[in-house]
Amino acid sequence: MLRLDDLLIFVQTAEAGSFSAAARQMDLTPSLASSCIQRLERELDARLFVRSTRRLRLSEDGERYLPHARSILAAVEGGQHVLAQERREISGTLRLSAPSDFGRNVLAPWLDEFQQSHPGLSLHLRISDQNADFFQQSLDAVIRYGVLADSGLVSLPLAPGNLRTLCAAPAYLERFGTPQTPDDLRQHNCLRYVMGEVTHERWSFQLPDGAQTVTVTGNRVSDDADVVRRWAVAGLGLIYKSRLDVFADLEAGRLVEIFPTTYGEPAPLQLVSSHRTAVTPALQKLREFLQSCCQDRVPAPLV
């Protein structure tokens, strides 16, 4: 069985050009260094050095084996570094902003679990459906749906395959019927939300024969997406929301998906940072954790 110490002495000797020089670098005696090389040669059944009274040089087998020995040592060192990084406790403060519905009902419980694993971490969470300002609000990251438009920011995907899904409470569907096509939405009460000054009332669907957009109407509008979802659960109308937001309601039967999930409009979830230097180890660990949390809630695309 190969010993890492022997490999290290072999590499050091090859680079130093003598047993004595390698031994000095490793605080060993020349005889011990020579013994380690002899043991390695027996294990490999190969002669690694050509020895003479005046000089020491690598043999042909030694020349061929040297890059592999270096690669083995580098792999071991890399593995030790990864484990050390994993064991290193993250600490400090993470200041985050998230959309209202996702932040309150999905993200908050996930953050509880994340903080239990990293008790040295302090979390500051802002809940808002409005655009966040990194600098005025001193944010480390913003969690948002959609594709990043500002190239000056850094986007770390959390759920790139997430889609919007059309759904309603069973009570609503029993009373008013289930839409069969996007055109049928014109005859239904569609619950809408406002972001900024824009009301999201043009609902797009990716149908087999192409995209279709329908302008919907309804008797309730809010600038808080969580409120809109609660209206739908109460049986007051249809909603068209991120599947991540309504996953728990679908699992519990409080809401029912109406069209196949693959017809939904893309709604990728991003973790957005102001600059690459702002992506700290704590933020990277949070990103990996949230990615794993999102994985089972996003349906696999049809092939």
Rank of each mutant, 00 (worst) to 15 (best):
I127N: 01
D101W: 11
G92K: 05
L111G: 06
L139G: 00
S128L: 04
I90V: 05
R95H: 12
A159K: 03
L125V: 13
L107Q: 15
L123M: 08
P160A: 02
R95F: 15
D129A: 13
G120I: 07
E86G: 01
S100Q: 15
S117L: 12
S117Q: 15
E113M: 09
D129L: 15
D101H: 15
G146E: 10
E113L: 09
P99R: 06
Y145T: 07
T93C: 14
Q137M: 10
F135I: 03
E86I: 07
L153H: 15
D140E: 03
S100H: 09
G161N: 01
E89N: 11
T93M: 07
G146R: 13
D140C: 08
P109R: 10
G92L: 10
D140F: 01
L121K: 11
V147G: 00
R164S: 05
P157I: 12
P157E: 08
D133R: 07
F114I: 08
S100W: 08
G161Q: 02
D129N: 10
L107V: 12
V142I: 05
T93G: 09
V142N: 05
G152H: 14
S151H: 11
S151W: 14
N162M: 01
Q115G: 04
L156N: 15
Q137C: 12
A141S: 06
L107Y: 04
S117A: 07
S91E: 05
E86P: 03
G92Q: 12
P99F: 13
L163Y: 00
Q116C: 06
L107W: 06
L107C: 06
V147I: 13
G120F: 15
Q130S: 12
L139N: 00
R95G: 03
V142P: 01
F114T: 15
P119K: 03
R87C: 02
A149K: 08
L148K: 07
D112N: 10
G152M: 08
D101A: 15
E86D: 00
D129W: 10
D112K: 14
L163D: 00
L125C: 08
R88M: 08
D140G: 15
L156I: 02
L123T: 11
P157Y: 12
R88D: 01
D150I: 06
N131D: 04
A141F: 05
G92S: 04
Q130F: 10
T93H: 08
S151E: 03
Q130T: 11
R88Y: 01
N105V: 03
Q137T: 15
L153I: 10
L94G: 02
N131G: 01
V106S: 01
A132K: 06
A84H: 00
H124K: 13
I90S: 07
S97R: 14
I143F: 10
V154S: 11
D129F: 15
G146A: 04
D150K: 13
S97I: 09
R88L: 07
R87F: 06
S97Y: 13
N131P: 05
A141C: 01
L156S: 08
